[in-house]
Amino acid sequence: MITGHTKLYGIVANPIHHIKTPQEVNRLFAEIDHDGVLVPFHVLPENLAGFVDSLRGMENLGGMIVTVPHKVEILALCDRIEGDAAEIGAVNAIRRESDGSLVGAMLDGKGFVGGLKAAGIDVAGMDICQLGAGGAGAAIAFALAEAGAGRLNIVNRSQDKARLLAERVAAKYPCTEVTTGPADSASRDIVVNTTSLGMKDGDPLPTEDTAFRPGQVVAEVIMQPEETPILALAKEKGARTHPGRPMLREQVRLMARHLGVPGA
Results as ranks from 00 to 15, higher is better:
18 H>R: 01
90 A>C: 05
191 V>P: 00
229 P>G: 11
85 A>N: 06
246 P>D: 09
47 N>Q: 15
88 I>Q: 11
185 S>P: 04
101 S>G: 12
21 T>G: 06
247 M>N: 06
49 A>K: 13
92 N>G: 10
136 A>W: 01
179 T>C: 13
173 Y>K: 01
60 N>C: 03
71 K>W: 03
128 I>F: 11
73 E>Q: 14
167 E>L: 07
58 M>D: 11
260 G>W: 07
54 S>H: 10
10 G>Q: 00
187 S>P: 00
178 V>W: 05
143 A>C: 09
235 K>V: 04
8 L>F: 13
72 V>T: 13
82 E>N: 12
72 V>N: 02
114 G>N: 01
141 A>F: 01
117 K>L: 15
69 P>N: 04
205 L>Q: 00
68 V>S: 01
161 K>D: 11
251 Q>S: 02
209 D>P: 03
230 I>A: 05
33 D>S: 15
23 Q>K: 15
47 N>R: 15
54 S>E: 13
1 M>Y: 12
85 A>H: 04
99 D>G: 12
264 A>N: 06
228 T>P: 07
18 H>Y: 13
137 G>I: 02
116 L>I: 11
159 Q>C: 14
160 D>L: 10
214 P>R: 07
72 V>K: 11
254 L>G: 08
63 G>E: 02
229 P>N: 13
223 M>R: 08
89 G>H: 08
154 I>E: 00
227 E>L: 15
220 E>M: 07
81 I>A: 10
228 T>F: 09
42 H>R: 08
245 R>H: 14
57 G>L: 01
156 N>T: 00
6 T>W: 12
32 I>Y: 02
89 G>A: 13
58 M>F: 13
40 P>F: 02
40 P>S: 07
178 V>I: 13
246 P>T: 05
261 V>P: 06
45 P>V: 10
234 A>E: 00
251 Q>T: 02
168 R>F: 10
191 V>L: 05
202 G>W: 05
250 E>R: 08
230 I>L: 15
72 V>P: 01
123 V>G: 08
16 I>H: 09
124 A>N: 15
57 G>H: 03
162 A>R: 04
216 Q>K: 04
139 A>C: 05
69 P>F: 09
125 G>N: 04
231 L>F: 14
91 V>F: 11
197 L>P: 02
33 D>E: 15
237 K>H: 07
33 D>W: 11
208 E>Q: 04
60 N>T: 12
194 T>F: 05
20 K>Q: 12
140 I>S: 02
252 V>T: 11
154 I>H: 10
76 A>I: 00
200 K>A: 14
115 G>V: 06
136 A>S: 14
11 I>A: 00
168 R>Y: 09
78 C>T: 12
91 V>Q: 04
34 H>W: 14
175 C>L: 14
173 Y>P: 01
57 G>Y: 04
207 T>E: 00
106 M>Q: 09
131 L>Q: 03
230 I>N: 00
175 C>D: 14
50 G>D: 09
249 R>P: 03
100 G>A: 12
50 G>V: 03
255 M>C: 13
23 Q>W: 14
207 T>Q: 00
